[in-house]
């Protein structure tokens, strides 16, 4: 147990960080399951970001509002990517 906690997990840190970041990014991008299971309902209780953008663009056909939302989402992705990129390149030099 100690070997696992003190040696294996710390050594795997860069890998774990990568996995966490990718998983959270994918969780934010979740679309399929919500779309099929609830369609955002009941009401808008399960309306995730992707689904909301989709509805604005392809149900209400408000392309410009959806584009504006897309730009903000893209900025958020850029920020996440920057953090991730730093982790990957720095983690590499240590390993």
């Amino acid at each position: 147990m100690q070997r696992l906690r003190l040696i294996v997990v710390p050594m795997l840190r860069p890998v774990i960080v990568v996995a966490v970041i990718f998983r959270s990014a994918e969780a934010v991008r979740e679309f399929d399951k919500v779309f099929v299971l609830t369609g955002g309902g009941p009401g808008s209780a399960s309306e995730v970001l992707d689904l909301f953008t989709y509805r604005v663009a392809f149900v209400n056909w408000d392309m410009s509002l959806a584009s504006a939302m897309g730009i903000v989402e893209f900025m958020a992705a850029l920020a996440a990517a920057y953090v991730f990129f730093r982790v990957v390149t720095r983690g590499g030099r240590e390993a």
């Binding site: 970001l49 992707d50 584009s67 893209f74």
Partner: peptide
């Protein structure tokens, strides 16, 4: 370029859905 590729991977797919559709 690598950074751009990474950003593209982390971006929600719906962001590109609107421009691609147009």
């Amino acid at each position: 370029l690598l950074f751009v590729m990474l950003a593209a991977r982390l971006m929600p797919v719906v962001v590109l859905a609107v421009p691609l559709f147009v």
